[in-house]
Amino acid sequence: MRMWPDGYGRILLDGVDSTNAEALRRAGDLAGPAWICAHRQSAGRGRRGRAWAMPEGNFAASLALRTAEPPERRALRSFVAALALFDAVAEAVGSDRGLALKWPNDVLLNGGKMAGILLEGQGEVLVIGLGVNLVAVPDAAALETGAVAAVSILGETGVRVGAEDFLDRLAAAYAPWETRLVTYGFEPVRQAWLARAARLGERIVARTARETHEGTFETVDASGALVLKTAKGRESIAAADIFFG
């Protein structure tokens, strides 16, 4: 094991229904923040209750943290996790070429979705779930219409990364970003995320449960909301699905 950060637990499982569910089940027994990684996941889930498929050889892990922060502060961990994923993948393949971050919680590689993030909470426990297509992609039929096509690290770069090796890289990448957030607040994390953002300055579509917003992606504000310049003026959107068209 290499580069493992001080103070973080490391739990490896052969298989589980969902690493997020397992993290929530174990939360009461954890002495500190802990990573839970499984080689197989039978009932992974993504945002809005969607299923997250995990072909053999891909990566599924969750980080369980204890925090008494309010929900809006906890939600900023999606940006921390995205930056950690960006760094871990770049380190694993030897380049950050083609990597970009898609608001609110995806990581792209050569324009395709390579990884996703899901935050869930229970009491003072925050669980950050991360799924990464290391070697394979899910069935295209499972994707939402208009969604970004899925890609894998192996398929796009020719580099094969094992799940345990990637866990070590990810944990090492996450810890300093977490420290920045706790020490300096969201602003340095926000600026770093924007420097890696997909389609910044371009027209995108943001769909909520009730509305569709189309405009130029201007920035992410201090609360983590997406800011669009639309025909109606500047609009801040706290949660939505993003489509590039």
Rank of each mutant, 00 (worst) to 15 (best):
V16G: 05
A115H: 10
A31F: 00
W193L: 01
A84H: 09
A100E: 08
H39P: 07
A195M: 01
R45S: 14
E72N: 05
Q41L: 06
L167K: 09
G46V: 10
A27G: 01
G7V: 06
F59P: 02
M1V: 09
A92W: 06
G245D: 14
D96H: 07
K232E: 15
A225Q: 05
A150E: 09
A100T: 03
G9C: 07
P33V: 03
V227S: 09
L170P: 08
T67P: 01
A198Q: 09
A163T: 14
H39N: 13
V89F: 08
L83E: 06
D221M: 04
L12K: 10
T19C: 05
L63Q: 07
G112S: 13
A136I: 08
T219Q: 04
K229D: 15
A81F: 04
F217Q: 01
A239K: 08
N105V: 03
G28C: 07
L154S: 15
D14F: 05
R10Q: 12
T157H: 09
R203H: 10
P70G: 02
A100I: 03
L76I: 07
D168S: 13
V151M: 06
W103G: 02
A51Q: 14
G116T: 11
N133H: 10
A34V: 10
F243K: 01
E72T: 10
A82I: 05
A31N: 00
L13T: 06
A225I: 01
F244Q: 06
L134N: 03
R48A: 15
I36S: 02
H213C: 07
G9E: 06
R97H: 11
A27N: 00
I204W: 02
A61H: 08
G201A: 01
L134K: 04
A240N: 08
A27V: 01
A231D: 14
K102Y: 04
P5S: 12
M114I: 13
V135F: 00
A84Y: 07
L154E: 15
V220D: 02
F59N: 05
R207S: 12
L108V: 05
A231S: 13
S95G: 00
L194I: 04
G7F: 07
L194Q: 03
M114E: 08
R160Q: 11
L65D: 03
L109S: 02
V89C: 05
R10E: 11
A171K: 02
L143S: 15
S18Q: 10
I117R: 05
L118Y: 11
L12D: 14
R25E: 12
A238H: 15
A38N: 11
L76A: 09
G7I: 06
M3P: 00
A172G: 04
G7Y: 10
N110C: 15
E22F: 11
S42K: 11
L200I: 02
A68P: 02
K232F: 13
D139K: 02
A136M: 09
Q191R: 13
A27L: 00
A21L: 11
E178L: 13
E202I: 00
L99M: 02
A38L: 11
R199A: 08
D87E: 13
P138T: 13
Q191H: 05
